[in-house]
């Protein structure tokens, strides 16, 4: 009985967390009205030896992309060559999409000193090597 109660409570907590996440997502503005930046589509691919962050940046030139990193975060900012004017759509009225901004927490155990970034056909690929693992002697 106690086990059933604990499992039900866990399920309720999970559901509440999901609803909170969904609600936060709904309240998040689609566009930063000051900078005209939107969050681009992206994916984080975790491999044993590296982490790859792939970002979709259509309408951007390589020289207009900036990548910043700190110990635990990475930020991508990119300016579009031709801003997208969506003034006919009321939710975007008064603003145009002028660029992208992505701010991500870095996964643990990556070597932030050796990050590589590569841009091709509108996609930015950032490769973060994993930190070296040291073998532990088994006695």
């Amino acid at each position: 009985m106690e086990e059933w109660f604990e499992e039900t409570a866990r399920e309720i907590r999970r559901e509440i967390r999901r609803l909170v996440r969904e609600f936060e997502e709904l309240l998040r503005p689609i566009i930063d009205t000051e900078t005209g930046e939107v969050e681009p589509l992206y994916e984080v691919l975790k491999r044993p030896d590296k982490v790859i962050i792939r970002v979709d940046l259509p309408g951007v030139r390589r020289e207009d992309i900036e990548v910043y990193r700190t110990e635990d975060r990475i930020t991508v900012r990119a300016k579009m060559g031709n801003p997208l004017n969506l003034c006919d759509i009321p939710v975007y009225s008064g603003c145009e999409i002028r660029g992208y901004r992505l701010d991500l927490e870095l996964p643990p155990n990556v070597d932030t000193e050796n990050i590589q970034a590569f841009y091709r056909k509108g996609y930015l690929e950032i490769t973060l090597p994993r930190r070296k693992a040291y073998r532990v002697k088994v006695e």
Partner: peptide, 11 residues
């Protein structure tokens, strides 16, 4: 129009 379509269909 490839890049424009990609930008517009993000959402």
């Amino acid at each position: 129009q490839e890049e424009e379509i990609r930008a517009k269909l993000r959402e």
